[in-house]
């Protein structure tokens, strides 16, 4: 016999929900003061509260990488971290990469190399690729495959994604 997991009653939930937390985030270079519930993930904050729906929810468990954003320049899964823990942080999402009409070089390369089909994983792939370039650890195609393995593409555009990252790394070096 398995006991049902504890579920706080409605009154308790109401008591919890009034304790909103005030945080300041710089999202795509815009500083914002935001009130959040403690249990709101960065992903849900972006999509549901700020309507920045470029960042995708795939698995919501850190397995697919569709929710990858840059947190203070570092790529993370936004589904597995609480917004309340990031007071003062700078977040860059796919919406923040272009400068006006000028796409980020990695975005350009995704188009040039035809590195997507359905496009659902693409925002995460792009943020992850930029994170990988910032980290500076990938040297060989094998390294790139390994260090991009946190981003799943069910259409199987991997070969062209690999080309994008390879080219971007070569551009960085030259």
């Amino acid at each position: 016999m398995i006991e049902k997991p504890h579920r706080p009653n409605q009154a308790a939930e109401a008591a919890f929900s009034i304790q909103k937390h005030k945080i300041i985030l710089t999202i795509n270079e815009v500083e914002q003061e935001i009130k959040v519930d403690a249990w709101t993930t960065v992903l849900d904050l972006l999509r549901e509260h700020l309507h920045l729906t470029g960042t995708k929810k795939g698995c919501d468990h850190g397995q697919c990488g569709a929710c990858t954003v840059l947190m203070d320049g570092t790529r993370i899964n936004s589904c597995l971290t609480l917004a309340v823990m990031h007071d003062g942080a700078e977040i860059t999402t796919v919406e923040g990469l272009a400068k006006g009409e000028q796409l980020h070089p990695v975005q350009e390369a995704f188009i040039e190399q035809d590195a997507f089909q359905c496009g659902y994983c693409t925002p995460g792939q792009i943020c992850s690729a930029i994170g990988l370039i910032n980290e500076g650890k990938a040297k060989t195609p094998e390294d790139i495959r390994d260090l991009m393995s946190g981003n799943i593409c069910r259409c199987g555009a991997y070969n062209n994604i690999l080309k994008v990252v390879q080219e971007a790394l070569e551009r960085e070096r030259s």
């Binding site: 850190g62 990488g65 990858t68 790529r75 993370i76 899964n77 597995l80 994170g131 393995s149 946190g150």
Partner: peptide, 9 residues
């Protein structure tokens, strides 16, 4: 272990 995104956190 894990992925770069997870190891970063």
């Amino acid at each position: 272990g894990a992925s770069p995104q997870l190891r970063n956190k």
